[in-house]
């Protein structure tokens, strides 16, 4: 039979109350084994306090060709950044 184990994406929360962050991927037959393998492969040197695993096929991703339509509109909207507005020094910290 020999079917290939599915691919999982691994997310680890570091020590400091950060978000889970993508660290890599691995193969495992199911979620339980994926977490065990992720522990062995990605946290051998105290890299984390929590692990998420997600089957790679379940991740939906934006397409590289959509980069323009998706992200360019925000380029012109500089007023979304606080530095767009100049506040007189006399007003103090804002």
């Amino acid at each position: 039979m020999s079917s290939e184990w599915p691919l999982w994406e691994v997310f680890i929360r570091g020590q400091h109350g950060l978000n889970h962050r993508h660290v890599g991927s691995l193969h495992a037959p199911d979620a339980e084994m994926a977490i065990k393998n992720a522990r062995d492969v990605y946290t051998r040197r105290n890299e984390g306090v929590s692990i998420w695993v997600v089957k790679s096929v379940d991740i939906a991703a934006s397409s590289p060709s959509d980069k323009g339509p998706l992200f360019e509109p925000s380029n012109s909207k500089v007023y979304r950044h606080p530095t767009f507005f100049s506040i007189p020094d006399e007003v103090g910290h804002m």
């Binding site: 020999s2 037959p29 199911d30 084994m33």
Partner: peptide, 16 residues
């Protein structure tokens, strides 16, 4: 190791 890899897949499928 083939039988072992296959067994884990069979277990995962049954469990699902």
């Amino acid at each position: 190791g083939a039988w072992f890899r296959d067994a884990l897949v069979a277990h995962a499928e049954k469990d699902a």
